[in-house]
Write a protein that binds this DNA or RNA. Sequence first.
DNA 1: AATATATTGGTAGTATACTCCCTATTAACA
DNA 2: TGTTAATAGGGAGTATACTACCAATATATT
Lengths: 190, 190
Amino acid sequence: MTLSKETGHRQSPTMSDEKQPNRKSFNDLWGRPGFLIRRLHQIHVGMFLEECTEFNVTPAQFAVLTVLYYQGTLDQISIASQIGFDRNTVADVIRRLKHRGLLERPESLSDKRPKLARITDEGREFVDAVQPAMIKAQRRLVSPLSVEEYETLMKLLDKLLIENNEASRAPLRTKSKRSSRYDDAKTTAE
Amino acid sequence: MTLSKETGHRQSPTMSDEKQPNRKSFNDLWGRPGFLIRRLHQIHVGMFLEECTEFNVTPAQFAVLTVLYYQGTLDQISIASQIGFDRNTVADVIRRLKHRGLLERPESLSDKRPKLARITDEGREFVDAVQPAMIKAQRRLVSPLSVEEYETLMKLLDKLLIENNEASRAPLRTKSKRSSRYDDAKTTAE
DNA sequence: AATATATTGGTAGTATACTCCCTATTAACA
DNA sequence: TGTTAATAGGGAGTATACTACCAATATATT
């Protein structure tokens, strides 16, 4: 999907063009971008779990807690949209976090369908406590890079995510397209 | 782990140094490198499955088939080492591939412990048939990038994987450190 | 008002990706 | 030689990340 073909300009070649020199290198497992990304994701999870050993928390759980930390109360689908998780995955994660008392499940007053998720005070304290370990894991992952290389990487990843967003299995809504804050949640819930 | 500290040179600052300007941006979910990589991995899997719909094969299954395609017969742990999978994950994947007749499980003649995995003729034909769809998925993932950006990305990912290799949960052996080809496999199995 | 559609959540099932613990076999060593 | 180490695989259990289907609720349309 090379943009601005209507200008008629000769665009700089992109990876979507045929006859790029990289076709042959895909034969090598380690020449496949998807394979490198799978491996790096694996390493990230490993580092995250290692740094957060004492807190017994996973990247997915901390991602859910993070959005609730800043937004208070949300329904499952809104959480999934914001962090790019599958709806059912979020349901599983929420169940475990509730079991630990880090969030509660109030009902909405205006709509009987959603079972909301709201972070508890204990959950907030937990996020505050874990934050340094999470940051340490993030820094450790990219520690081999110079600051310039890091910024280049983040820019490239960001570009890939934006351009490929709609192509994924659990596509993200555009940021704040749905204002799905629920301020009408019941205060008690079990 | 900034290299060449023995030279005494003032190194360009890396992400492992404290007081980098990125600490604050980690508060944002989308400013965390690990989070971007998780999402990109997710998108890759989605694209792979989409392109390979007619073949009903996953990235993990195709990775296992690929190493066997080029190396014939290997034991489970050697496969895991080469592609950076967990040992038990490989066992699961192998079980499914065997069930589809794409590989067989001969025993070794010299060692009674390993249950080897060897690609069948049907497995080879399968890899040949799927290859174009796999390549299409890889190209699609990086299609938003120019060739130059693509090469930069691959270089940075490669650097991160090499430097962080030992820190992961299922660390890879150095390439061809173990010559674990089994040429003494029985021809019939199960 | 009645029907159709969309939304939200739930359950069940599959695949990846680990953990921990166990047995069997081989290799190394005292 | 006998005991210990390391290696290879298996089984159970957990967590992520999906699909597919179903029930309840809400909204839109006729």
